[in-house]
Amino acid sequence: MTPTAFTPWSALAGGALIGLAAVLLLAASGRIAGISGMAARLLPPYREADIAGRLAFVVGLVVAPLVYTAATGRPVAQTVGSAPLLMVLAGLLVGFGSVWGNGCTSGHGVCGLARLSPRSLVATLTFMATAVATVFVTRHLIGG
């Protein structure tokens, strides 16, 4: 597979921005920055209050790369898979699993770990383990 450059400083800086966003969201709305939870609550049935606030967050998330490019002049480099069956299957698993487990990388992996939640620690260790195992199987056992 194609190697990617090790970028510890931009990784730390970007991570700090993600943390700042989570803190800002808690300060403003009193809620955790869990992307899967926010996205799922934009689907019916609408039981929670403040759908507009969640929608505003998701809109900000979606326009972010466009704002980034407009502000810095730099395009966002991305290599996305394109096999239709694989992408659809992966999307279904990510969507189902994150909502079934009450969180994803952001809700459990960032906000939950920051709150020292045992549930989030179990969740994070579990998705890390199955993700690493999946890449091992697809790249080294099947693909190679």
């Binding site: 992966a90 699993g97 994150s98 909502v99 994803c104 990388t105 969740a123 579990t126 195992a133 999946t134």
Partner: peptide
């Protein structure tokens, strides 16, 4: 939930955010 999510994450490299 996280086990299923992790498989999808490993297949495409995308999580929800």
């Amino acid at each position: 939930g996280p086990a299923v999510f992790g498989i999808g994450w490993g297949l495409a490299g995308f999580c929800p955010g």
